[in-house]
Amino acid sequence: MEYAALNTKIHAMHSRFLSYEDFEKLSGTKSVIEAGRHIKQLPGYAGVMRNLEGERLKRARIERSLNLSLFDDYMRLHKFVTGYKFCKFLEAFFMDNEINLIKIILGLVLGERTEDFSQEELLNEKVSAYMPNLSKLINSKTISGFMENLSGTSYYKPLMRIYNRDATIFQLEMQLDLFYYMNLWDKRKLFTGSERRAIEHIIGTQIDLRNIMWVYRFKRYYSFTPESVYAFLIPINYRLKAQDLVNLVSQKDLENQNVLNKVLISRYKNIFNEATSLESGYYQKMESVYSKTFNATGSGAVFAMHYLFLKKLEIDNITNIIESVRYGLSPQECMKHIYYPEKR
């Protein structure tokens, strides 16, 4: 019963998710601007897209605005969260979005990623309410000023640890991700009994999958040497044996899906098959973990996590469609690039 109000709220918010038909309509648009206008009419995103008109309806901007809607939803949920422990946990769970924002700002401060970007875009009222020190952070002139403005937050310590050792921006970003997962893993201890096991299962699976995906990306797209990959792995192993991951790192040829499957002899064997991309494999597995654990426990915490997960999935899907539209793919092609769970 402790989650009654929250559950009702989430059920109501579920109604704003896009239907499969909505996605089909979106994929039928002819240009990014048209797609953007279409998204602006959707109830879930009207608010965050309000300021984007005509010229400003560009892919990168739409994407960023969509992401900001996550903060909007989170703040709505947060009002209905009761209990100190649950509150703390959800904060830790949602932190990755905050981290994404910090990464964007870090790029801005270092001037490495200018693109077409305006600060006002980030200073959305909802986000500012969530992160009071946001404007101070954006206005940092130098990296050391940026670090100073971060002091007092929980990111300061882990970042400072490597900032003093001439870390690159990439290393700083990865350190934030590491911190997110280690902190989240630790926060599972706030729960007890079956709820804790359920949450452990979700986070543990997510961490295992993240590790696999990171190794895959680092080796395939960034061609990292095996030695340098370890610095970016989360030092937590749930059901994926550390040795399997080490084997994956030391593998020469990752192009071949069979190699990937052979190396991963654990329970994540068939997640990454040829039919789906890495991302949709991840979403598929996580979706099944979420639904199963929620059905088994009925935990409100899991329900809230699931909602935020679905929201992120939806944003990813929309982004993928816009991308496809930009490259002029046919509606059928577009729909191949999204993963839409059968049943909500």
Binding site: R161, I162, Y230, P235, N237, V246
Partner: peptide, 16 residues
């Protein structure tokens, strides 16, 4: 070695 790095080492490379 910073603590986080040590934990990574312990998880993945201790048996190297």
């Amino acid at each position: 070695i910073p603590l986080s790095g040590f934990m990574q080492f312990e998880a993945y490379l201790y048996n190297d």
